[in-house]
Amino acid sequence: MNETLKNNTAAAEVDTRETVLEVKDLVVQYVLKEATVEAVNDISFSLKEGEAIGLVGETGAGKTTTALAILNLVPDPPGVIQQGSISVCGNDMLNLDVKELQKIRGKDIAMIFQDPMTSLNPVLVVGEQIAESVRLHEDVTASQAFDRAIEMLELVGIPGARAHDYPHQFSGGMKQRVVIAIALACNPKILIADEPTTALDVTIQAQVLSMMNDLKEKFNTALVMITHDLGVVAKMCDKVAVMYAGRIIESGTLEDVYNTTLHPYTEGLFNSLPRINNKGSELKPIPGMMPDPTRLPKGCAFAERCKYATERCFEERPASRYVNETHTVACLRYDEPDFHIEGVED
């Protein structure tokens, strides 16, 4: 701990930004009668103001559970946060009562959910839905709150006059903009976006992402971008954490993970994407599937699908190791000094 402090002071010369989010040793399980789903298994990461981290992984990797845990919104039962601590702007999220949590949610930290079609209230005009969040967190009158709602709508590129329209009168892209307006209405320090553009068409995705980028810069918001799309991360984030079966198996700056990929799973993800500029190249899918989270293997969870796996990989769980100041990887093979993966094809 002391060492980290020292390191931080050393780094402070270049980076004076405040750490707004810190997740430490988080373990989340869904305890069911028949089995226990090990959704998130000991993950840690932190985020400074204005930074953007991409949590990447496939269905069931534990990305959304992580996001819910940060807000202390894991459905309980069956969800149980078994271990860990989460600090949002200095608040210990896991040890606050509901009243205090409600002050933080929406104010210091906000979330955008994947499906804009279902995250809006169909019987309230959108302006009211944006104003609600302002009213709850700030000492304003109803009409001031509504004025702010109109302002927010214009900020996300929707004419203010449409504040009196209902969600069904908007298209998918517009609804997602409304959701973003709600999330940003109280100028949060941290924004969690859970697959914000997955339900949108490509050209609309491009519009929404550039708008998010502009707003992020304008308000210096820290962003946790949850996605399965490596292209979205490349556009939006400066840090990446790749998740597999509830663990972060590789993390680092965008350059670390994309340019010097280390983990076999990350390599596999890149190689299963079709290349735009190289049509001839063959897709190399990762064989098999993610292990059942109720029965995670004793060793490395990826071993069964990994072409580099040795006997030891099936027996021992790899710990995360630093390969440089920012880049971590959890793979036993890196114990061998001259081990390297075949690499990502260009």
């Binding site: 490509v202 050209t203 995705q205 491009a206 519009q207 992402l209 550039s210 799309d229 490596l230 292209g231 979205v232 991360v233 490349a234 556009k235 965008l254 350059e255 994309y258 340019n259 890149f270 994407l273 735009i276």
Partner: peptide, 18 residues
Amino acid sequence: LLSAILVPKVNGNPDHIS
């Protein structure tokens, strides 16, 4: 449409035609 494709590369996504 083509410019809206997000390439999974560092600096792989210059401004798209919006």
